[in-house]
Amino acid sequence: MVEAIIEGFEKAFQLILSGDPEVLSISARSILISGTATLLAAAWSIPLGLLIGVRSFRGKRIVRSTFNALLGIPAVALGVILYLALSRSGPLGFFHMLYTPLGIALGQAILITPIAVSFITSAIESVDPEIHRLAKTLGASETEASFAVLRESTGGVALAITASFNRAVAELGVALMIGGNIRGSTRVLTTAIAMETGRGELALGIALAIILLFLVAVISVLMNVLGGRR
């Protein structure tokens, strides 16, 4: 059995190094879908995180703890809920988004929103409140002061976005239930790994797993370097 694993790794590296079109297209699709999901989530999470982090308002603690509680939402559970909603007989069936790449992207965006919002809020709150006050003292408007805080917390925000992307690209539940693992359309790294291992294509499964690990590691390191520069 050990030999089989070694052989699997050998074949896996061959697949990656020779630029196997199947492996490449699945990886590219994964990055594209999860990247879009991350951008979407960032687009609404940064302003939201800013609002929650900088402002004080009634029910702020409830909002914060809601997002914190949603941090660990199981992807499979969200997958089921979204599947029922997006199914042709479900309430959002008219979108025709089930089994489409866009469906996965939206599902993943929802999945990672709590992570993005929660981490961004923490990053902003960890900035010395004096900066916000000082900026205002010096005559900055509320918006300007907020952006001054945002600028101070760039590293934390970048980390939040990285963590979100990593969660999106590594999750299986939403991609499988909303995407359906359709070859050439919604087959992404995680669904392909699960399927190829299940149907005995070990080398392909290992190759895809290596790519997934590599992808997550490279992006994390890259963001650490960029974030640590300041």
Binding site: L32, T36, L39, L40, A42, P47, A105, A140, E144, R151
Partner: peptide
């Protein structure tokens, strides 16, 4: 003191860029 690195305009620009990139991704998908 506070707006040199990231002025209000730049900040909004970055956010709008993220949103536009997201939209391009959505439309492509």
């Amino acid at each position: 003191r506070f707006m040199q690195g990231l002025t209000l305009v730049q900040g909004v620009l970055v956010l709008v860029l993220i949103a536009v990139a997201a939209m391009v991704g959505v439309i492509y998908l």
